[in-house]
Design a protein around this nucleic acid. Structure first.
Lengths: 233, 233
DNA sequence: TCAAAAGTGTTTGGGTTACACCCATGG
DNA sequence: CCATGGGTGTAACCCAAACACTTTTGA
């Protein structure tokens, strides 16, 4: 932007720009990613991330475009979304001369997505994320993209930065710990986890609320609204 | 990419795509970023990151585009470059309806860039990075972009992942420590640094080579070529 | 023999893990 | 009163900071 003239915006042909979504959830004790089976070429029959074309007439910015795509293709309202990165080159997508994809990730409750076939994706379903990241048969470079998204989510959970909109409004610390274990794929110590949590101040107790059962009632917590001051994209 | 047809590539108007470079170096004991003064509108007179338009006819991929831009605008060959992220929206750049910028960062030796005025940037010069990140008078959203680039570089150095092409081929551990201190902006303990370094195995001694001076000679090291297995973009 | 910088060892403290132990409730 | 999960305390351990110390050269 330091150097382009007004004419640059029109004289040079521009790449084909798409948005890809790495939607993640926790199910069966592990991190899962939403994939669909492509019904058309290229890569017909292969599994792929859901996505869509950036629409400069409809999308105010990249995030808004992701929300539109999620809504159109999957009927999902996305909570907090985070950019994974951009990939682009001549050879990425046979449909275009030069294809650029901006990839976002989003953690959401499993129930918020009905695994219903979309427009050009059938058999939309949750797949264990580590399995998907290692799967060399995915369409395009989506395996790599999933790997990057998973790494970023694990980094966040390791640093106790829990995204809003993913967990239920209130939860017990044990539920939070078990979710973290599923995301990270390793055991966490109960005592140490509790201490780290309240040292970080990321949750606050909901005063009267407790969860009862055939045992001692559990204090319910909610995520603290804190300035995360992360300078990402 | 899961859903677009061949016609999508041509029927929808595409955004104006640019590449921006956050070139960083260490000088005067601190991290510096290369900025130029814009000679044209918009933001004439403001400081900005160097950058240029993505050329689908010339650039095989995003990284290649960055190298081309660096070469054309600044006459620099870039060593290892890393993506910071992408920003895009309707209102980012008054020259275009919809502007998308992909931002890369690169650490390089100060001497590799002659601070010579470029095509539409004059007064190209190194500015302390923290100062630039906090400067609200930079063109576009470049202050934020610099902040993200600086954070990413600090994270890398904290984890002892040193980029190739930035340091001289061989160096002493003290030089590496002092460079790290400049990047991180804080003091590092000599003993602890040495232990961490060789536990991580990121450098290897060059057998016969020592640096002499009015003191005990220092062993020279080089960066180990290791599989960094970072799943970024 | 002194200055200067390389290189090592030892202590301390913060934070996490592992694990044992109490607490409160429903059945 | 027992099973079940919530919640707490403690010792072991790991890692890095702090800092004092020895080593090796040129002057």
């Amino acid at each position: 932007m330091a150097t382009a003239t007004a004419s640059s915006a029109t004289t040079h042909p521009m790449p084909f720009v798409r948005l890809e979504l790495a939607l993640l959830t926790v199910a069966e004790g592990a991190l899962q990613v939403l994939l669909g089976r492509r019904s058309e070429n290229p890569f017909a029959g292969r599994m792929a991330l859901p996505g869509g074309v950036l629409r400069v007439d409809l999308d105010a910015d990249l995030e808004a475009g992701c929300r539109r795509v999620a809504h159109e293709r999957l009927g999902v309202e996305l909570p907090a979304i985070t950019q994974v990165g951009a990939v682009g080159g001549k050879k990425r997508d046979p449909r275009a001369n030069w294809a650029l994809s901006v990839v976002y990730r989003c953690l959401l409750p499993q129930a918020s997505v009905q695994a219903s076939p979309g427009k050009r994706l059938d058999q939309v379903r949750w797949v264990p994320a580590d399995e998907a990241a290692a799967d060399s048969k995915l369409a395009f470079d989506h395996g790599r993209l999933i790997g990057a998204a998973v790494d970023a989510v694990r980094l966040e959970f390791n640093e106790l930065r829990f995204p809003h909109g993913f967990l239920p409004d209130v939860f017990t610390l044990t539920e939070l710990k078990e979710t973290s274990e599923a995301v990270l794929g390793r055991h966490l110590d109960k005592s140490s986890f509790r201490r780290r949590i309240d040292a970080a101040g990321v949750v606050q107790p909901v005063d009267g609320a407790v969860r009862t059962g055939a045992n001692r009632p559990a204090q319910l917590y909610e995520l603290a609204r804190l300035a995360t001051e992360t300078r990402g994209m």
